[in-house]
Simulated assay, not measured.
Amino acid sequence: MTGGIDPAEQRAAVRERYATIATGDSEGCCDSGSSGSCSGSSEEASERLGYSSDEIGAVAGEANLGLGCGNPTAIADLRPGETVLDLGSGGGFDCFLAARRVGPEGRVIGVDMTPEMVEKARKNAEKNDAGTVSFRLGEIEHLPVADESVDAIVSNCVINLSADKPRVFAEAFRVLRPGGRLAVSDLVRTAEPLDGLRADPESVAACVAGAATIEGLEAMLAAAGFEDVGIDPKDDSEEFIREWSDERDPSEFVVSATIEARRP
């Protein structure tokens, strides 16, 4: 369990939240349903997360949902011809950016557990003529990806949503080739959330209450077999995180961070 929530209940809450985002029945962003930073466009939200105007303008369709807490493709050092896996790929925005970097000889795989998101991403792939990008329905704790088949893994504010983070990192290690790397943007916990938040499925599904500490993440990554672990909190993320909720200030207990590691 995570914070007293049954894992099945947590998965259901996350799936329901992102299904409504995929179908346009909810605001984007990792917020708690507030008007906050989500009142602007997805393009404005992405600029605040670290995406360039060139990156934002390069992707057609509705792939950019304004979700996330950083820009994982900026730290992944993707190279032509590589195979990239995106954990929790949503509408496919990071996948299409990764495809630009790995080129026509490369391949990008997006995995998402929400059927509505996978359907949306596949439609966006057609709009972007992205023949090297594919999307698969699956959980990041049980990846539908072969052993040692991926060069790099990216993810944007998704691992904090998992009820079994050690399993996520074990699966990431399994599918990476020797020498492969993990480069994700996610949240880390800097203090205990307010009473009751970690036991509230909606707060966990909104990225507000499910994050692990830096020390906890380092231990999980080491246990999975990763080396060269580096976790770099981004203090300037406080500006957009505090707008994720009208009822509380999440920046008091979470911060965005880049999380990098390598499979030996």
Rank of each mutant, 00 (worst) to 15 (best):
E105M: 12
L194A: 15
G33C: 10
D236F: 11
I241N: 10
L137N: 02
I140H: 05
D164P: 00
A191D: 15
K234P: 01
S52A: 00
G81Q: 11
G3E: 08
A146G: 09
G33R: 03
S256K: 08
S34W: 06
L221I: 08
C95Q: 06
D86I: 00
S89N: 04
G225L: 09
I140T: 04
D129Q: 03
R79H: 08
G196M: 12
E243V: 01
V108C: 08
T73C: 14
T190G: 05
T213M: 05
P144R: 02
G66A: 04
P193S: 09
I153A: 07
S155E: 07
V255S: 14
F93G: 03
L78F: 09
G196T: 06
V154K: 12
S155W: 07
G91S: 03
V188Q: 00
C207E: 10
T20Q: 15
P166D: 10
C30D: 12
G70A: 03
G90T: 04
R11G: 01
R198H: 06
D94Y: 14
G36L: 04
K127Y: 11
R189V: 02
S52V: 02
D77A: 14
E171Y: 12
P250V: 09
V158D: 03
S256T: 00
G61N: 06
L194R: 14
T132A: 15
G3T: 06
V133K: 02
L97K: 05
G90L: 03
E192D: 15
D186H: 06
V145S: 06
L67W: 09
V133A: 13
Y18G: 02
R136L: 13
S37M: 13
I5V: 13
D246A: 15
R122C: 10
A125D: 12
L182G: 01
A205G: 14
D112C: 05
R100L: 11
D94C: 10
D151C: 03
I140N: 01
E192G: 06
N156Y: 13
I241L: 15
E243Q: 15
V154C: 08
G4Q: 03
A257C: 14
L87N: 08
G110W: 04
R79G: 07
K120W: 04
K127S: 15
L194K: 13
N64F: 10
C38F: 10
A191Q: 09
T190C: 02
C38K: 10
G179W: 01
F240G: 02
A98Q: 09
E148P: 06
A212I: 10
P144S: 03
A206S: 15
I159D: 07
A146S: 13
I231Y: 03
D249W: 08
I259E: 12
S53I: 08
G216V: 05
A211H: 12
S52F: 05
S155D: 03
A63D: 09
